[in-house]
Design a protein around this nucleic acid. Sequence first.
DNA 1: ATAAAATTGTTGCAAATGCAACAGAAAAAA
DNA 2: TTTTTTCTGTTGCATTTGCAACAATTTTAT
Lengths: 206, 206
Amino acid sequence: MDIQNLIDNISTNCSRIQKRTFVKGSIITTYMEKRRQICILTSGKADLIRYNLNGSQDIIDKFSKNDIFGETFYPVNSNNELVVKATDNCEVLIFLYDDISIKCKQNCKYHTELSANLLEIVIQNTMHQNTRIEVLSKRTIRDKLLTYFSILSNKNYNKKITIPFSLTSLADYLSVDRSAMMREIKSLIDEGFIIKESKNVIRLMY
Amino acid sequence: MDIQNLIDNISTNCSRIQKRTFVKGSIITTYMEKRRQICILTSGKADLIRYNLNGSQDIIDKFSKNDIFGETFYPVNSNNELVVKATDNCEVLIFLYDDISIKCKQNCKYHTELSANLLEIVIQNTMHQNTRIEVLSKRTIRDKLLTYFSILSNKNYNKKITIPFSLTSLADYLSVDRSAMMREIKSLIDEGFIIKESKNVIRLMY
DNA sequence: ATAAAATTGTTGCAAATGCAACAGAAAAAA
DNA sequence: TTTTTTCTGTTGCATTTGCAACAATTTTAT
């Protein structure tokens, strides 16, 4: 059973692992020190929001299908509140880190499977993070774009790439101003580095 | 045994887990598809370098004590070469992901311990990555600095923080031009946001 | 102790970026 | 279908940033 299948088929009748649904706009979880909760988003979208003491609130992460989150993976302290809010209707697996290493009462096979595959899931997440860090650490929008495009291209051994989300989301992922990014994409087209074949399909010429 | 102790005391006589030393300038490892090697740096410093097909080489990550790396955590493909180079004399634990889940011939206790704690080590790494991503995703140098400072401050519940490395390294961590960062630090001091108590010690006034 | 290397601090300037604002196109909801 | 919302595309302008270059200081190596 691969990870995708595991996540898709996880049982809801395990006493340790909940499968819950959340409507758009509701709070999925609040990060709490020492609890070590783990959540896996099986459908929908959600934002990780930081409420600072001074009242400001920042979206510091965005989650989509198969993303893993929870205070287990984030430095948490009492100086600010971290909250995950559903930006779409969501389905989420929720369990505690400490519960996953011990057998559940029913000794159910999903619990065992999840336990055996949690490391693999976390490693997959690490890979995504490493990719994002590599892109974010480029200094110019141009380099961020070219790096991101190259990674997509290399992954599929194809110069024709499909951006897996909207350009607005791409700007968020690259953490740059959208209009500045659009300007830069236009320059890349004008200078012959890329060809835009359709809205989300780009051909790399380098 | 906590993770730090585990890493410090790991046995060298386990057939599956090597403890190797590398002199400054030497290649610790080259990332290879499908091998799934895992390395833990127990002392020294190293750079992850990407050699692109066009001949350019980028430092895409920097490792120090207790950092974990290897192709297990990085998307690897044949279009470019990823190499870890010692920038100081290094001591490194090296093993394969697949070897860690099976018992070693000697059934040694370190192998067992490492196996049991690998998830915890990877999660710790995830936390560091999340922190870095939060900082890198700020758009201005000022916000990157203030976010980084706040995280340090919150962690220790103290407005007086000590930057754990040189300002040159801080600029690398934030992925910004060093001189521009110095200029921004000066502005933060002039505007009363921070006070520099000594070279690496800063007091936050916000 | 002395030399070499690394780090800090500073500045001018050109280039890149964010911000604000808006119109049109496309997609989603009613 | 029609309306509403989201997304794309564009531009002017002020601000921020990177780059280059250099001197002074501190740290490390010889």
